[in-house]
Design a protein around this nucleic acid. Structure first.
Lengths: 220, 220
DNA sequence: CTGCATCCGCCTCGATACTG
DNA sequence: CAGTATCGAGGCGGATGCAG
């Protein structure tokens, strides 16, 4: 991004990650290092030259690090630096804002397999999580995510949790209705849109902790 | 921004405000409606056609509203919608992140007069503000800002506060050193870099509540 | 097959000029 | 004051090439 020569932290942040694709590359790398080709696949539409250029820029300003994995499989991977990882707060804030005009997915295959690992921290409300120490296992469409809430923080990962307080199964529209508080957990269970095993009150609490503000209509 | 046809709230948010200048226009409007020419002045380097195009886009997706002020002075102003205003969280998160590699301003005139109204909410730490009900008046370089902290929230405005618990005067490098915790409030007073009137402990508390994470070295 | 560099056509950007 | 019209330069997406 071109120098905007204004002394302003937002301007400076945008000079670092404000260009097309930059933030999305960071999103891809938030869950761990990836290879060049994996990035290409995760970012449909990006030109290979653009990706190379962005990675060079992000590396030169201390957001991304290029690492060579040693043999047996010598591959080069890109990894976020600690400073790069701290973009997660800003990304989640942006995601929360964007989610309010996005609406539920039309078809489940619009979602990428790890989407929940991004979504759950973004939906997390630390205020409501105070004093809660629980683990939720969510089976949404064909994907399984685990959210561990403790000490006012959340850790999300792909996969099941043998120690979950509650295991819930639903499709993605139901999940979106629940986090938007357009559907109550009790109704979801009663109508059969969600099936749960375990503590019912944990299921209720889950959507007090993970939620978004009400949806907004327009945004063409 | 071009359609990136990926179901992801970040992608969607970037489609709305990810283009060059879009977020900066929002920044300009966060403190109230502005006229077209004022926007041009606040955004040095923006082309008038670009500004017009961005305003059209932002209006069409429900972030900005164009209003005509009635006579006596018939002017058209641009104002954020409620949904647009809620970008403040994301902007402050981005600002906090950017501030860590920005460093203090080289000269005070790099700063725009209202900068503090943006900076204070961005630096605000709700965790540290719990149970605090205080008002701080900060004279930084030639600008005066007031921050009212109450019920875990902050309101910042330009101008003095007759009811302030503490009035502090300093230059901007000192302010930046204080919020970065590179300089303690006690040292700042002792060395004469800051002059205060009022409660000393309120001055200390001010920079517990308003702070950034430690600065990061690089970021070319 | 991975990790890029190069080339090409389009579209957007920024700057200036001009109009109600 | 509040924009529209125009134009050159550069960024972008897509395809291709090529070395390790």
């Amino acid at each position: 991004m071109k120098r905007l020569d204004q002394y302003c932290p937002v301007v400076h942040a945008l000079e670092l990650v404000g260009e097309r694709w930059s933030l999305l590359i960071v999103r891809e790398l938030l869950h761990g290092p990836k290879r060049y080709t994996d990035l290409t696949n995760g970012l449909p539409g990006i030109g290979t030259n653009i990706l190379a250029a962005r990675l060079r820029d992000l590396e030169s300003c201390g957001i991304v690090e290029k690492k060579k994995l040693p043999p047996p499989t010598p591959a080069t991977v890109y990894e976020l630096t600690p400073y790069g990882k701290e973009l997660d707060e800003a990304m989640h804030a942006l995601a929360r804002w964007g989610a309010r005009t996005l609406g539920p997915p039309k078809s489940p295959d619009e979602l990428y397999p790890e989407w929940g690992v991004n979504a759950l921290p973004a939906l997390f409300d630390p205020e409501r999580a105070k004093g809660v120490k629980e683990t939720y296992e969510l089976k949404i469409d064909e994907n399984v995510f685990t959210a561990r809430v403790a000490r006012g923080r959340v850790e999300a990962e792909v996969g099941a949790a043998p120690d979950a307080d509650v295991v819930a199964e639903m499709d993605s529209p139901t999940f979106f209705a629940l986090v938007a508080h357009e559907l109550s957990p009790a109704e979801a269970v009663k109508s059969g849109r969600a099936r749960i095993e375990g503590a019912v009150d944990a299921f209720d609490r889950c959507f007090e902790i993970f939620h978004i503000a009400p949806r907004v209509a327009a945004a063409a």
